[in-house]
């Protein structure tokens, strides 16, 4: 289980995370927010890539705030697939095994589920955006993380491919059965994927009932008037 307690982070005296708290079980929680709302920073703090100014992160009741990223057992899929270009798709996905993590069995299962068998020997540069995203996801899942963090992993993908990928991603993440935090600025993407939803505005997080509610909160916070009457 993932628990985030009163996380705060400032850059140049501007609060990016403002007392962010979350308590998550093995569900897909989607955070919806505009660019610069602090959602990517939140994932980086949870992953241990960025240090918070204050607050605590727990996984299974263990305080992991002071741990380095390699000690946290967290899967992180960044905005761009960030594949290791000198390795093949299979070597990318097997990478965690070099560090004694994950299992071949899980890897094979997700390779099968996401239809990656035909591209295993290919280098990332030769793959389409959709396959790069799939490889990036399996690479993290294969390490058997306790928590998954996905930072707009499909932002580079066009809508038609995204429509096909989202159910695949959902199926695989559900199969994994671990707390998953998925960040996006797109309520449509959020509604296709999420079990529960949060809106993030200016570093503050609010739980909402549906992805569509995010719009109202964001608009209210930025005093944006709807042009549609």
């Amino acid at each position: 289980m993932l628990k985030i307690d009163k996380l705060c982070k400032q850059y140049n005296n501007q609060p990016v995370l403002n007392q962010v708290s979350l308590d998550m079980g093995p569900k897909i929680s989607v955070i919806i927010g505009l660019n610069g709302s602090g959602k990517s920073t939140l994932l980086k703090v949870v992953a241990g890539i960025v240090e918070p100014d204050s607050g605590t992160v727990y996984i299974d009741r263990q305080d992991i705030t002071a741990l380095d990223p390699e000690e946290r057992k967290i899967g992180y899929v960044p905005q761009h697939p960030a594949l290791f270009n000198h390795l093949t798709a299979l070597e990318n996905m097997r990478y965690c095994l070099k560090n004694g993590r994950g299992s071949e069995k899980i890897l094979d299962r997700y390779v099968e589920m996401l239809g990656l068998k035909d591209i295993l020997t290919k280098k990332p540069r030769t793959l389409s955006g959709g396959f790069k995203s799939r490889v990036s996801l399996v690479r993290s899942l294969a390490s058997q993380p306790k928590v998954m963090l996905l930072d707009e992993p499909l932002s580079d993908i066009d809508v038609a491919v995204k429509e096909k990928l989202l159910p695949e991603f959902k199926k695989v993440l559900k199969d994994m059965g671990i707390p998953t935090l998925y960040v996006t600025h797109d309520p449509w993407e959020a509604s296709l994927l999420g079990d529960n939803f949060y809106a993030m505005v200016k570093g503050k997080i609010t739980e909402i009932n549906s992805a569509d509610d995010a719009f109202d909160i964001i608009k209210a916070s930025y005093n944006i008037k709807s042009s549609v009457s």
């Binding site: 990223p69 992180y76 960044p78 905005q79 960030a82 990478y95 993290s140 390490s143 993380p145």
Partner: peptide, 13 residues
């Protein structure tokens, strides 16, 4: 790309 290194760290490096 900084994210490439970040991912490697989360994979145990």
């Amino acid at each position: 790309e900084k994210e490439v290194i970040d991912v490697a760290r989360t994979l145990g490096d």
